[in-house]
Design a binder for these strands. Structure first.
Length: 124
RNA sequence: UGAGUUGACUAGGCAAUCGCUGCACUGAACUCUCCAACAUUCGCUUGCGUUUUUAGGGGAACAGGGCAGAGGAAAGUCCGGGCUCCAAAGGGUAGAGUGCCAGGUAACGCCUGGGGGGCGAAAGCCUACGGAAAGUGCCGCAGAGAUUAGACCGCCGAUGGUUCGUUCGCGAACACAGGUAAGGGUGAAAAGGUGCGGUAAGAGCGCACCGCGCUGCUGGUAACAGUAGUGGCAUGGUAAACCCCACUCGGAGCAAGACCAAAUAGGUUCCCAUAUGGCGCGACCCGCGUUGGGGACGGGUAGGUUGCUUGAGGCAAACGGUGACGUUUGUCCCAGAUGAAUGAUUGUCCACGACAGAACCCGGCUUAUCGGUCAACUCACUUU
């Protein structure tokens, strides 16, 4: 089976699922243009949730642009299993070019993977 | 060829790989779920309810290949409708909107055609364009005076007054009473304009033409235009100031509305028990905990399903109409998401790609926008 899928199992769908990550997040990865919150979720597949406010990104085209890039990089990044992530957009995220943004996002996913591995090693 | 006007169309293309959403099709087994012949448990009202299970069938999920997948503005939410729920005899008031005429339309504040006014050399463009003798309000500065108009400079001083002269008829001077809206000056605007007559000087005081009002006639469905007569011109502007007149409008919106419905708490009702009891933990006893327990019903939260895309639909042709548009026939099915899909990477070509993302659906308007294509028309120049 090829990797890099992105079905409904890999997304946060309900308000309660979002709230769980907001309340119990164990990792925070910050960047001037966005913020990542994450927590382990047991034995499930990793899931992604997007929070892109109209206040921060005013145009619908901008919001779609960010959603697509984040999903694309999330699906291609080789994250460890069983982690829920929320992506919060900050102001100015839509000003970056697609190529720059993709690179920066990949960097963020790398940092998140690193943190996960460290934490797992500690617990073991 | 250049400059311009109007209208219509288009919105990077192609290939490969990976990914998302929907639809129909195919598919071995497992899992979940629904229906369920036959069989089966229990109950009694003895043919029904109920328990369990299965042949078989449906759905979810999964896999496979196939097909489809944002806009001209999807936007602003400024108008108008459909649809849904609520309200509703009829009439009036309030409030909001519209405002030359005729037509189109489901409807409109939109569109088409026509009229008036303004701009442009022209094609063409702009136009809230009803009423100011129903009433109220406002009109800064400047200016003598701004709507019951007005005398600063100027002009006149016929008439009256004063002074002088006198041939006693009157003449001259003064600018005092006054007369005067022609000229100057102020202003966006000074009480119709120009010319001639007239006069002391002037004035629609009289006349001609133009303008304006009224009345008639002609053309036009009408707005209106043309024309004849007449009035002697009397009362400026502002109604996107209040207002008056005519016409239109019930309210809320897909988070409308409909259906299914866990857990927890509470409600109604029935049954059992009422403490040596009941319930939970457990195979059972002891033990520990608890003080009611069990069932049914309806409301209803999380969540889910539906509304949800076949429509005042698109395309083509013929016919009617100046046109907006209408009629008929044929043909096509063209996003339906719901933390919300329509994308990413690479290669390649060129004019190097703007504004920008469906959210119940349509008709408009407005605003944003890199470019490209086509048609009709106007003007200028050149050639024939």
């Amino acid at each position: 089976m090829p990797k890099f899928k992105f079905g409904k199992d890999q997304r946060l769908l309900k308000a309660s699922e979002f709230q769980e990550v907001f309340d119990l997040n164990t990792f925070k990865i910050s960047h001037p243009n966005w913020l990542l919150l994450a927590k382990f979720n047991g034995d499930r597949e990793s899931r992604l949730g997007l929070v892109i406010g109209k206040k921060n990104i005013p145009t619908a085209v901008g919001r779609n642009f960010i959603k697509r890039l984040v999903r694309e990089t999330f699906r291609k990044s080789d994250l460890p299993h069983s982690i829920d992530v929320i992506f919060l957009a900050r102001k100015g995220a839509d000003k970056l070019s697609a190529r720059d943004m993709a690179l920066l996002l990949q960097e963020s996913w790398c940092r998140l993977r690193q943190r996960c591995n460290d934490s797992k090693a500690k617990n073991a």
